[in-house]
């Protein structure tokens, strides 16, 4: 297995449902870590609370599984106190953008040198499928039984606006592209934000006629719009469908960053 020795084999199989995309995102993140050649004892995985946030517990490094929404604040403390550590944060859409929204924008503003991988399954997975700030308008969940009536956050846009040095979005289907994006993020000093649209067949799929894993994958595949293609559409004056999300590298820049290893 790729990055086999990075897994805590004694904790597998993990708690994720069959077909949950979170496991794929861990694979891709560890593949990127291997590509960079990071050493295990210099790497720390940090997370908040949620299915996605269970990820650090399966990785054989120092790992900090914290409180709901606060992962980035904990990570800020770790990285500033010891810039020699490589810090990766796993988080979910609820963890990052609802309860942790304030820490999210401020971590981007500070541009603390770490990589944030958000598994955006458009739902609160762990608590059983309630609507989150990224639940698309009209989508069903246990708390949006008539379809969500709220606009959704675009997390990548938010990270760009708040100042992150690297921002990309892919899906848990686009594994090769995702590995490249995470690795590029890890190489970029400052905060790198990689949003991964991820299937939650159990709770998102079930309420939205996407119960089969293959249906959810098809949804991710057909709703992903390559950013270059989107720009072409815009240039040609064509409309970009509302329900699609852009994928690709969205920003790479060199704003001043904090906590960069000297």
């Amino acid at each position: 297995m790729t990055a086999e020795e990075w897994y805590r084999a004694d904790r597998l199989p993990h708690i994720y449902c069959a077909g949950c995309g979170n496991g794929t995102v861990i694979n891709c993140t560890l593949a990127a870590v291997e590509e960079l050649g990071w050493r295990r004892e210099e790497t720390v995985f940090i997370s908040g609370i949620g299915c996605s946030s269970r990820a650090p517990g399966y990785i054989l490094t120092d790992s900090l599984h914290t409180t709901h929404g606060r992962a980035l604040a904990f990570a800020t403390g770790v990285k500033l106190a010891n810039p020699g550590l490589n810090v990766v944060v796993f988080t979910g859409d609820g963890d990052l953008a609802a309860i942790g929204g304030n820490h999210f924008i401020h971590a981007c503003r500070r541009n603390v040198d770490m990589t944030v991988v958000c598994m955006n399954n458009m739902i609160y997975g762990m608590t059983g499928g309630q609507g989150s700030p990224t639940t698309p308008p009209g989508a069903f969940s246990t708390t949006t039984p008539y379809g969500s009536g709220e606009p959704a956050f675009d997390l990548a846009e938010l990270a760009i606006a708040a100042g992150a040095n690297y921002v990309a979005r892919w899906t848990s289907y686009h594994v090769k592209e995702l590995v490249k994006a995470i690795a590029a993020g890890m190489r970029t000093p400052g905060l790198s934000f990689v949003e991964v649209m991820t299937q939650c067949p159990t709770n998102y799929g079930r309420h939205n006629r996407l119960r089969r894993v293959s249906d959810m994958i098809e949804y991710l595949r057909t709703h992903a719009l390559l950013v270059q293609k989107k720009e072409r559409l815009v240039q040609e004056g064509k409309t970009v469908p509302d329900e699609m999300f852009t994928v690709g590298e969205l920003v790479r820049r060199n704003r001043p960053a904090m906590g960069v290893r000297r």
């Binding site: 900090l64 606060r70 604040a73 904990f74 800020t76 403390g77 770790v78």
Partner: peptide, 13 residues
Amino acid sequence: LGSIAAVIGAAWT
């Protein structure tokens, strides 16, 4: 919330 979180994170280093 962030202050105490950062302090705990730093303490683990």
